[in-house]
Simulated scan of single mutants.
Amino acid sequence: MDLLSDVVAVTRAGRPRSAHVRWHAPWRQEFASVPGSAGFQVVLEGSCWLLTPEAEPTELVAGDVVFLPHGHGHTLADSPETPATALACDPDGPEPAGSYTSGSVDRSGGDGPVTVVLCGAYRLDPSRAHPLLLTLPDLIHLPARAGGYPALSSAVDLLAAEVANPLPGADAVVPALLDALLLYILRLWFDEPSPPGSTSGWAAALNDPPVSAALEAIHRNPGWPWTVATLAAESGLSRASFARRFSLLIGQPPLGYLTWWRMTTAARLLRTSDAPLRSIASQVGYTSEFAFANAFKRTHGTAPGTYRRKN
């Protein structure tokens, strides 16, 4: 798997949820802060305002995508001046959080202009959060651009159609489209050039060919007996130059990140497969089951067998 695919695979817990919601002005909907989750809003029709405690109101128009990777609370409204007309939506609570359940919801506020929004939430496991996600800002706004994000627009159109009118197979299609939507958002964010003066962080790392090549090698084959020298060869740099560059951008040495990723991969295999421990140990680069168990316990605080039984 490649890096971004791995990020989604290891951090998501449970099934993502979404809803096709129609509001009639005047309306105002609060979305509760939900630690350990990520949310998105896509304006499909009409316009609305995004309200957050930290920033000035932002007008959203059809085609705008808003992604909140850390689950911070926010509000959507037909106007910044409209008073609250609905309780906060919480992905795990009862109605009115039902707007997060796959399907179409009509919320009558008044008889004014209509706004249609695709709302969604991803439940994440903080204990498995990839450092790439932790570096994202509290809010990512991808404004509508004519023909600017064709892949993202296609995913939105397909998802909106499936959620608004579920057909046989929707239970399989919708989660896959939500994963695609999340990946397109991450691609677009990390494909943007790093801000002037930015010399570290995952955005810079993914746009740095030598470091990106080493990361892809680690994720492509975590069980390979990588050394700083062999990873440097993948990057096309000298050993010393590569080690400095990797540590500066990623925030930890190459072998430190390699070990973390191996243990994260091992935890996923323990949760999702019945493979014997010796097989998992081999897949993440350990020839000795005993050495693997010790490394796993140092990282996760429990033995692999105990971790599997509990998860």
Score class of each variant (00 low, 15 high):
Gln29Ala: 14
Ala144Phe: 15
Ala205Tyr: 00
Val8Arg: 09
Leu44Val: 06
Thr85Glu: 03
Trp49Cys: 04
Leu177Trp: 02
Leu231Asn: 02
Pro168Phe: 15
Gly148Glu: 10
Ala295Gln: 01
Ala97Ile: 04
Ser241His: 08
Asp179His: 12
Val66Asn: 01
Arg220Ala: 13
Thr272Cys: 00
Gly93Thr: 04
Ser288Leu: 03
Val163Glu: 12
Pro304Thr: 05
Glu45Pro: 00
Val116His: 04
Phe190Val: 04
His300Leu: 05
Arg123Asp: 00
Arg308Trp: 02
Tyr307Gln: 12
Tyr122Pro: 00
Pro210His: 06
Ala38Glu: 13
Asn165Lys: 15
Thr75Cys: 08
Leu4Thr: 09
Ala97Met: 09
Trp202Leu: 04
Phe292Trp: 07
Ala55Pro: 00
Ser194Phe: 11
Ala161Val: 00
Phe67Gly: 02
Val10Met: 12
Leu134Ala: 14
Ser279Glu: 15
Glu54Thr: 03
Trp226Leu: 10
Pro193Phe: 15
Leu118Cys: 00
Asn311Arg: 13
Arg187Cys: 14
Asp6Leu: 06
Val173Glu: 03
Gly103Ser: 05
Arg128Cys: 07
Phe246Glu: 08
Ser33Met: 13
Arg308Ala: 09
Asp106Ala: 14
Gln29Met: 12
Pro196Arg: 15
Tyr286Ile: 04
Leu270Ala: 04
Pro150Asp: 02
Arg12His: 01
Thr135Ser: 14
Arg22Lys: 06
Gly39His: 11
Ile140Met: 02
His24Val: 09
Pro83Met: 08
Gly223Glu: 01
Leu237Trp: 07
Glu54Val: 07
Pro210Glu: 04
Leu133Val: 14
His219Leu: 09
Pro254Gly: 02
Asn207Thr: 11
Thr287Met: 09
Gly109Gln: 12
Asn311Lys: 10
Ala295Leu: 08
Ala25Asn: 02
Pro210Met: 08
Arg268Ser: 14
Trp226Ile: 08
Gly63Ile: 07
Pro131Lys: 10
Asp64Arg: 05
Pro113Ala: 09
Leu181Trp: 03
Leu269Met: 12
Ser279Pro: 01
Ala19Gln: 06
Val8Phe: 12
His20Lys: 10
Asp90Cys: 07
Thr230Phe: 03
Ile140Ala: 05
Thr302Ser: 02
Glu59Cys: 09
Glu45Ala: 12
Ser104Glu: 15
Leu134Met: 14
Glu81Asn: 03
Arg220Ser: 10
Ser5Ile: 05
Arg271Asn: 05
Asp171Val: 13
Gly63Gln: 07
Pro94His: 06
Gly301Tyr: 11
Leu44Trp: 07
Pro83Lys: 13
Pro225Arg: 10
Glu216Tyr: 08
Arg239Pro: 00
Thr199Lys: 14
Pro26Leu: 05
Leu177Ala: 04
Lys310Leu: 12
Ala303Arg: 04
Ala204Phe: 04
Ser273Thr: 15
Ala62Ser: 09
Glu192Ile: 03
Gly251Leu: 08
Ala151Ile: 12
Glu56Asn: 08
Thr199Asp: 05
